[in-house]
Computed example of a mutant assay.
Amino acid sequence: MGERGAGGKKGAEGEKGAGSAGEGGKFASRVAFAAAHVVADPFAGNGPGAPAVLDWDATLAHRVRLWDLGFGVAEAMDTAQRGMGLDWAAAAELVRRTAAVAGGRLAAGVGTDHGTDDPLTAYREQLEVVGEAGAQPILMCSRKLAARARGPEDYQRVYAALLEEVDRPVILHWLGPAFDPLLAGYWGSTDVPEATGHFLDLVKAYPDRVDGVKVSLLDAGHEVELRRALPEGVRCYTGDDFHYPELIAGDDVGHSDALLGIFDVIAPAAAEALGALDAGDLARYHEVLEPTVALSRHLFQQPTYHYKTGVVFLSWLAGFQDSFAMVGGLQSARDVVHLGEALRLADLAGLLPDPDLAAARWANLLGVLT
């Protein structure tokens, strides 16, 4: 890893949190990214194992909608089916096309999910693509590194090398095994407190290279402890789709910012709630978000990694895309009972802009499935 803290002495180019395509979001009190889904071309195959082919017009229009609401866009993340149908070729094109129309802050996932065997080399190759697009890098967890690492020192070596080289502050992403079972034991231990210690060692060695950490362990208590232990100036971006209202609201010690897949679904409500938080109206903030929690918990129920099916289903019901199709054929990953409950909860949360359209599309789907 080299001399401990060396990265903190050099300084990445640009101000902390800068270096991303577009301007910052409209929310003053929190940084809020929505991890955006992709819209599959329903006539291009997109079956299991097939190369991903996207409906580019609908995919990009959804991102513009998120920027218009005031969010940053987190691109090519797990919500976009990264590692579950969206291959690196499609992800790289997605990053480039999104950057070309960026109307707000843009960050993009950097991983190792392509042909290069060495995790460090793979990260470097993807960092180059994201950097050329002008997006802020999000260093995603690596299945290749998880499979090869024999201890925390292997994670430290790879990440330290990357943080020494980046030219702008990055977001570090800790995705838990509920979202990807192949990432069990990340950072060198299956014991979460021990893994957290290794993770914090890295962040504290390179505080000026890390804009923030994005934690998706679905453990609110752990997140609060982690954010209190972070170096000054390093943000904690909640990835907890179960406890986001209280984590974003925070306490008398601090708060979490947000990088959430559920914001893809509840964007209008989340925008209103964050606006209320900016105005100091905490009661209104909770009043708006509270009905969305039941929906989020439903969509992210086990197996959690299939939450994307509900995200795309609700986008279709809302009229934001013309078909309920997904890359990898994953529209079949949730059953009709699950989808029906998602519809009910979305309606209760006021998230269906055209209820008649949603009802008609649901009836058509039931006609096929039953």
Rank of each mutant, 00 (worst) to 15 (best):
A269I: 00
L343E: 12
T121V: 15
L202V: 14
A161R: 09
A318T: 02
R344T: 14
Q136H: 07
F199E: 13
L66R: 08
D322F: 03
A40I: 08
D154N: 04
G151I: 11
I248D: 00
G111A: 06
R228N: 13
G134N: 02
L172A: 13
T304R: 12
T121R: 15
H222V: 05
A61H: 05
L357Y: 13
L226H: 01
V101I: 15
W187G: 05
R105V: 02
F71G: 03
L352C: 11
D241H: 11
L175R: 03
M140D: 07
S296P: 03
A161L: 04
L247F: 08
D322E: 14
G115N: 11
H222T: 01
T309L: 09
A147L: 12
G19M: 02
G310W: 05
V95K: 08
P152K: 12
R4S: 09
G45V: 07
D252P: 00
S216Y: 01
L200I: 04
F300K: 00
L289Q: 03
V368Q: 12
L127R: 04
Q81N: 13
G111I: 09
Y305W: 09
V327R: 02
R124P: 05
Q331S: 04
G22Q: 08
A346N: 03
G310H: 01
G14Y: 07
R96V: 14
A363I: 01
A267T: 00
E93K: 11
G11V: 03
L86D: 08
G185N: 06
A161N: 02
Q126N: 10
A161C: 11
E194K: 13
G8V: 10
V312S: 10
V73S: 08
A32M: 00
A102G: 03
L345G: 12
Y186Q: 14
G233A: 10
Y206W: 14
L106C: 11
P51F: 01
A40W: 10
L69R: 07
A89Q: 09
D335E: 11
Q136V: 12
L69N: 05
Y237E: 00
D281H: 04
R65T: 13
F320N: 12
V192C: 10
L139Y: 09
P268I: 07
D191C: 09
V110M: 04
